[in-house]
């Protein structure tokens, strides 16, 4: 398989923070709003160097989202920053009416998404966010896989007109995609070509999928690994092209099975190309406290779980 090297583990939120600082320098229309989580969101550099374009709202996310919507009227490009939990469910109605339905150019940037938020536990581990956001018409939903890709995605959404939900996380994870890459919204990335099975992964689980791919190769199984960084709009063409070749699918994500990437892929395949699908995702359960790695293991989101799903889907494909 194609080799991917971890150039040094980093948190994806820091990729976001670096990009925001860069945008502060290059795009005068960019405004940042933060609801009392500036250090956690890695927005300190932006806040320090561009105080006139940094709006501290206090712990008032509903107000923050609607202020952001108002700022677009006047040509600003507002980026809101808080955790995934407070970026979605807490403000769903505000996003629905003032951002999505009104088609406002607001970038909702959500850190600490998924189970790898870790020790804070289930109250903060949002694993429904992709589902909530992708259901909204007009909304683009992006979930990058590492530091470099998160940085590139952040820069790219500033150029995109329309509402965007950008999801990233807290823990340090392998950084393996190219620095300075060009990020194309809605364009799936084939990380490894294969013929026996398609593995569609998003976010932190992309690295796990690559680890699984390596192990599968040792066992003589050729897997195609595709990074679906844009959940919506889904790159249907890329998904179908891969599935026509392999004839079976494993999806992998740090999210509830209901409403996640697997759900989107299964919906597409049911309509266009029904094949066996196995899903590595959280199965209708809240999280709990623990370290990110412990939680990934316990909730079935680790490399062995991807392997297991591939084996299962290959059996189904053969029968």
């Amino acid at each position: 398989m194609k080799e991917y090297t971890n150039s040094g583990s980093k948190d994806t939120r820091s990729g976001f923070g670096e990009a925001m600082h860069e945008l502060g320098k290059t795009n005068p229309a960019v405004v940042v709003l933060c609801a009392d989580l500036t250090p956690s969101m890695k927005l300190e550099a932006f806040a320090k160097d561009f105080p006139e374009r940094f709006i501290q709202t206090g712990i008032a996310e509903a107000n923050m989202i609607c202020i952001a919507a108002g700022l677009t009227i006047g040509g600003k490009i507002p980026f809101t920053g808080t955790f995934a939990n407070f970026s979605t469910g807490r403000v769903y109605d505000q996003i629905r009416q003032s951002v999505a339905y009104s088609d406002k150019n607001v970038k909702i940037c959500a850190s600490h998404a998924g189970i790898t938020l870790g020790e804070d536990g289930a109250t903060h581990q949002n694993m429904e966010d992709l589902g909530m956001m992708k259901m909204l018409p007009n909304m683009t939903v992006i979930n990058p896989c590492d530091f470099n890709q998160t940085k590139a995605a952040t820069l790219a959404i500033a150029q995109h007109k329309g509402p965007v939900y950008l999801r990233f996380g807290r823990p340090k994870v392998p950084n393996f995609t190219a620095p300075g890459q060009k990020f194309e919204i809605g364009k799936a990335l084939v990380l490894n070509e294969g013929k026996d099975v398609s593995i569609f992964a998003t976010g932190h689980l992309v690295w796990k999928a690559l680890e699984a791919c390596r192990l599968l190769e040792e066992q003589g199984i050729s897997s195609e690994v595709i990074d679906i960084h844009t959940i919506k709009p889904l790159d249907e063409e890329a998904v179908l092209a891969s599935v026509h070749k392999t004839g079976c699918v494993v999806t992998a994500e740090e999210h509830e099975m209901n409403g996640g990437l697997g759900d989107s892929i299964a919906q597409l395949l049911a309509r266009k190309c029904p094949v066996p699908v196995e899903m590595v995702a959280v199965n209708d359960s809240f999280g709990e406290s623990g370290t990110p790695e412990e939680l990934l293991r316990k909730f079935g989101l680790d490399t062995p779980d991807v392997l297991k799903a591939v084996k299962a889907v290959l059996v189904r494909k053969r029968s």
Partner: peptide, 21 residues
């Protein structure tokens, strides 16, 4: 310029538009 109907959002939106001005 923006949808309204679900209540309680307009004052915040207006603040945003005022800051943009």
């Amino acid at each position: 310029r923006i949808a309204s109907g679900s209540l309680g959002q307009g004052l915040s939106v207006s603040i945003g538009a005022a800051i943009a001005k």
